Simulated assay, not measured.
Amino acid sequence: MDPVKLQQALDDIFDQALLHHGFVDYMRDYLLVIHATADPVTGTAPTTLRYLFRHCVQATCVTTVRADTWRESLDDRLITYETGVDLDGYVWGVKWQILYPGASLVADSPTAQSWTTAIGIDFHEVRIETNAHDLTLVFADLRIEEVPSRSQGPDHKFPIR
């Protein structure tokens, strides 16, 4: 995959809503489901996108939620929006994360180069930062497709008041 096109695909999801991430059921590829919106003035309708990172040999996920916020966010009522919205803490039940500061290609990644040498196809490393997780993926290819929206999107729910 061309690194310039890869970075453009990552730029396209900047500041959008990450609805889900994780390995798909056959556990080779890593999936991001993204709700993308645009300024209503543009007339562009919101869409749900599937970013499939194929041949993912490494996926690292670390929280970006501060420890003091975690401490206030252990209550199971926070995993459902309706029961957590009026509580102090991070409302996990909003069921989305903001893709900010965003995603970027890791230039000259030694990890990606090692896999390229070992397998014989090009690998890439990306870092995807959200308001709740910091992801690092090493993979060979990215496929993007529009999928039917499962909900109206996250526009009205926020994790912290």
Rank of each mutant, 00 (worst) to 15 (best):
Q152P: 09
L142E: 07
H21M: 03
S104F: 11
L87S: 09
S149C: 10
A132V: 02
F23V: 12
S73K: 02
H20Q: 09
P148H: 01
V33P: 05
V91D: 01
P154H: 12
V126I: 15
V126E: 05
I98P: 05
R161K: 14
H20C: 03
F123N: 02
A132C: 05
A140R: 10
D39E: 12
L18H: 00
R28C: 14
T136E: 01
I160Y: 04
V4R: 11
P3H: 10
A132Q: 05
Q7M: 09
P148C: 01
E125S: 09
T136S: 08
P40K: 07
G93M: 08
D29Q: 12
F23I: 11
F23S: 10
P154F: 08
D155N: 15
L6H: 11
T117R: 12
H55V: 09
T63G: 10
F14R: 15
Y30W: 14
L74T: 15
W115H: 13
R54V: 00
I13K: 00
A112Q: 04
W92K: 08
Y90M: 04
V24M: 07
Q152I: 12
V138A: 10
Y26S: 12
T37I: 07
S109R: 03
E146D: 00
A9R: 15
V91S: 01
G89D: 00
W70V: 06
D76S: 14
Y51C: 04
I160H: 04
T83Y: 11
H35D: 14
D86F: 10
A38T: 07
L31P: 00
S104R: 15
L18P: 03
C56S: 15
F139T: 09
R28Q: 14
T63M: 01
H55I: 09
F23G: 11
H21G: 01
R77G: 02
R127A: 06
E72N: 09
L87Q: 13
N131R: 00
R150H: 12
V147W: 07
F23A: 08
G120V: 08
P148I: 09
T44Q: 11
V85R: 14
P154D: 14
L19K: 04
I144F: 14
Q97D: 09
T69F: 01
R71W: 05
E82Y: 08
T111R: 03
I13W: 04
E129C: 07
Q16F: 00
I13V: 13
P154M: 10
D141K: 07
G43K: 06
T48F: 02
L18C: 12
E129K: 09
S149E: 15
T60R: 15
A59T: 00
R71G: 00
L49Q: 14
V65W: 00
P154G: 15
D122V: 10
V106W: 03
Y100G: 13
H55T: 05
T60D: 13
S109Q: 05
D68P: 06
L135E: 02
S73H: 02
M1R: 06
S114V: 02
L87F: 11
Q16T: 13
F53K: 04
D11R: 15
L32E: 04
D2T: 09
D39R: 05
G22H: 11
T130K: 03
V4C: 01
S114M: 13
D15Q: 08
D88M: 10
A45T: 13
H156K: 15
L74M: 13
I34T: 04
S114E: 14
Y51I: 01
D76N: 13
T47I: 13
Y30A: 04
A59R: 02
L142Y: 05
L6C: 12
V138I: 12
E129D: 11
P40L: 09
